[in-house]
Amino acid sequence: MRARPSFARSVAAAAASAVVVVALVFTAGGASAAPSYPAKMAALGDSITQAATTCSSLSSCPANSWSTGTNTTVQSHATRLRLAGDTGLVAYNDAVSGAASAALPGQAATAVSQGAQYVTIEMGANDACTSSVSTMTPTATFQANVTAALTTLRNAGTAHIFVASIPSLMRLYNLEKGSFSARFVWALLGVCKSMLANPTSTSAADVARRAAVQQRVDDFNAVLAAACQAVTTCTWDKGAVANYAFSKSEISTTDYFHPSLTGQASLARITWAVSPWVS
């Protein structure tokens, strides 16, 4: 006659089986699946995303854009997605040179109409770069514009939204203020007067003016971070662009303000590193 297993052995075996089952359930349910590739993407923003000055003049050159550009030297987000296997990706560049945050809700609506499943946003430099400190966009207005745009994208079910921070205007000033060529071009073209006017002046008023402009940029970045973090499908760049120390080779010598071709490649690299497909 065969001996029956003891009660203790039966309980132990059952417990072990239960542990295995629970582990399998948690492994299957807890594993984070890689984000699906988008069929379409769109870039929102201003002249930075239009890659202005990277061709032969002050005009836009979207082929060199950090977001949707096709120039393999830049290795844009669109290029990296295609290289990763998203070969059928269609990319739209809806950014407009000179645009400020007031244009962002409309750009978001355009991206929705295009069926974009991945949307990048780089906006805010023109809200701080105005004729004077008094004409900068109020932070509350900037917040309303950004929130409206993200709400449009969220309500449309946009799968992935990426928000890049605004570059440091003070760092740009400090990098180029010693260059006669930069100072000449800034004055000739009236580039970002709120920050770059009277670049050699060390008067208390001018020092305070520059600090006020950079503070507004910092405030805008705080708005972008909070607004993005409130949307589950949005990825914030964690200040990657704001904290990046651009070198002179990464700044265009056409206006000593916009990213050069090398700068666009750097933007693509540092933002891709914190994109939904990497971070």
Rank of each mutant, 00 (worst) to 15 (best):
K40S: 14
V163C: 02
C55R: 09
S247W: 02
A125F: 00
A31C: 02
G106E: 04
T54H: 08
M170T: 08
P5D: 01
D237L: 09
P259W: 08
S201M: 07
A222S: 14
A99M: 08
T137L: 11
A103S: 14
T151M: 13
F26T: 15
T262L: 06
A43Y: 09
R209W: 04
V217R: 10
V22C: 12
A156Y: 01
A140P: 01
A265W: 01
S101M: 05
N126W: 11
R183C: 06
P105I: 09
S101E: 09
R2T: 10
G124I: 12
S134Y: 01
G263A: 15
Y173K: 07
S36I: 03
P5R: 02
F246N: 02
A78G: 15
F7D: 11
V207K: 12
T235P: 00
S32L: 14
E250S: 09
R269A: 14
Y92D: 14
A33K: 12
P259G: 05
V11I: 11
N71C: 00
S266I: 10
A149M: 04
R82W: 00
I161P: 02
A205W: 01
P35R: 12
S249H: 10
R171A: 14
A245V: 10
S59V: 03
P62I: 11
S179P: 03
N71T: 06
L169M: 15
T72S: 15
L267I: 04
Q143C: 03
